[in-house]
Design a binder for these strands. Structure first.
Lengths: 236, 236
DNA sequence: GGTGTTTGGTAATCGAGGTTTTCACAATTT
DNA sequence: AAATTGTGAAAACCTCGATTACCAAACACC
């Protein structure tokens, strides 16, 4: 046990193979798609035997889970570091920073959003749970910044939980579109849109339309539309 | 050819089997998940033989594609009908209506958003393309309403394409969270949040922070953060 | 330098699920 | 009533990919 091969320690060789497999996984999952990539293909591309594969991972999903976690962790590290550098800035600047660094981190390679927001969706219950955890974390981040803004009087004092979740969804949707769009969308446009949307969402007054007897400003066409002719497209 | 069986026309029998298979697909895809549902399970639940299955569909993905299309079409019908009824209303009312009817249609059954926003993601290139088409359609809808608001002076006159895409993403993210959340989120909260977000996004002024030399209000920590210590988590 | 031990690649196996085919039956039409 | 044809159930098939087992090669130690 513990024998140096080819001049490098076995630990190092293991780690190298692991990294090469993860790289191959990222590449194949985002080009052929997760469903259609075979383990042997990953091994071939990584220059690793199937035996070594099973020494490192339990299967394809294992690789996907780790990649998904890595991408999010990387973004989280960058964002945390950047926010630390603007600790004294005003709330709006912090929010803009949070977004810019996130966008910049995740758009350095179109494969990152592709894997995160397309390939890692609906694969298994565990991955869905992992997604949930990350959405919670990002939403908590946004919520904290929103509350800080509220404390400084720059935003209303209200519950920002759903707003934060919606904003995470907006970022997800925009990035999913970005990585799939032909011709490619300018990254700075995506970042600008997201930044403006986020600021508008947090700074918005608590009630925009305040019509008595109809809270929220929605007309009551809901019931009538349900009994209308378009109901012909019943699903079940 | 064309022989009435058991009192019903063959066309009708075919259509019935097709519907039962689609219903079984919706149920199994959203409980066991698309990946793990087997064709034989669908057939068993629908009370249909595998032979009949292949008479109607080319495979599992075919069923998923059709369900995905149906759900979106149903929502589109409802929204179109509702908007027709408030043709004369002001832009903000129309936007609130659009959202309310959409949310109401798609939350009548948690399986609908589950299939649309979880199970039908990252399955195949064709499904991804179909998703793209629907995002475009919904975004175009929102864009049209935003432009109408701008024409009436209720919103700034600018390009709303990315805003619309981001809002579709926000709705997607919120509904994905809604169908997965335990304990369940109140539907009216989700609707209210989305409505407020959308109105804020459309009515927001073109520039919120206007710092000369730094368009958009973002600080320039981007470059420094990239060379910082957190880069230890390099992905490739 | 030989030998034992660890590592890696290749090939065979194993199983699951999708797809096709066959066979029996039921209903209808003449 | 007999022939014919659409219909459904089930079994057989067959492909494909994950997993394991075996063999070859490389290195450390003696």
């Amino acid at each position: 046990m513990a024998r140096t091969y080819g001049g490098v320690a076995p630990e190092q060789r293991r780690a190298d193979r692991r990294e090469r497999l993860l790289t191959a996984g990222l590449e194949l999952f985002t080009t052929a798609g997760f469903r259609q990539t075979k383990i042997t293909e990953m091994c071939a591309r990584a220059g690793v035997s199937t035996r070594n594969f099973y020494e490192e991972f339990t299967g394809k999903e294992d690789v996907l889970r780790i990649l998904h976690d890595r991408i999010n962790s990387l973004a989280l590290e960058h964002v945390t570091a950047a926010l630390g550098k603007v600790a004294e800035a005003d709330a709006m600047t912090r929010i803009a920073t949070l977004l810019d660094v996130f966008i910049d981190t995740v758009t350095v390679d179109p494969r990152l959003p592709r894997l995160n927001y397309v390939e890692a969706v609906g694969v298994s219950a565990e991955l869905e749970q992992q997604h949930q955890v990350w959405v919670d974390r990002w939403a908590a981040f946004i919520e904290t910044e929103a509350r800080r803004a509220a404390a400084h009087g720059a935003a209303p004092d209200r519950d920002y939980r759903l707003t934060a979740i919606a904003l995470v969804g907006a970022a997800t949707g925009l990035l999913r579109e970005w990585q799939a769009h032909e011709p490619p969308l300018p990254v700075e446009d995506v970042g600008a849109e997201l930044r403006a949307l986020m600021l508008a969402a947090i700074m918005r007054p608590e009630k925009i339309l305040d019509i008595p007897g109809n809270p929220g400003g929605a007309p009551d066409v809901k019931e009538s539309s349900r009994e209308g002719e378009p109901g012909g497209g019943r699903l079940t």
